[in-house]
């Protein structure tokens, strides 16, 4: 709230800080660099590490967007609690569904399902 024409509102409260321009442009640069990195790393067959590496880079990018572009790093903690809480539930949702599928998919055969449906 420093360089504003509206001097009358100059004492407006603290968390309305405008982020410095270098931080915004720097974040953009980092996001572009990480995009190039993920495209580059996809050229190589890293076997089992392909997906974790791609997801790791995507998560770093997501954190940059959340913390800086979306101001979470400078915002009320409650907003972080909301969004990271939702991400926790997404993680539980997907991982439990995958666990369930891993456990029981082998037991399901076409015959079983046909039998169940005919009963």
């Amino acid at each position: 709230m420093t360089a504003t024409d509206h001097a009358a509102h100059g004492d407006h409260h603290e968390d309305h800080h405008a982020l410095p321009l270098w931080m915004l442009v720097g974040t953009w640069g980092a996001l572009m660099g990480l995009t190039l990195l993920t495209v580059f790393s996809a050229q190589f067959d890293l076997g089992a590490f392909d997906l974790p590496i791609a997801m790791g880079i995507a998560t770093i990018k997501a954190m940059l967007v959340l913390l800086i572009f979306m101001h979470l790093g400078f915002d009320k903690g409650f907003h972080s609690l909301l969004i990271f809480g939702s991400l926790l539930f997404v993680f539980l949702f997907i991982s439990f569904t995958l666990m369930d599928r891993g456990q029981y998919q082998g037991d399901i055969t076409v015959k079983d399902s046909e039998k169940l449906l005919s009963d």
Partner: peptide, 24 residues
């Protein structure tokens, strides 16, 4: 003979494990 799907299925506890199943 119906064995292939189970082999892939054995992997997945987490999204990352899809990649393990892929390699394996």
């Amino acid at each position: 003979e119906g064995e292939g799907e189970e082999q892939h299925a054995a992997g997945g506890e987490h999204a990352d494990d899809a990649a393990h199943a892929e390699g394996g």
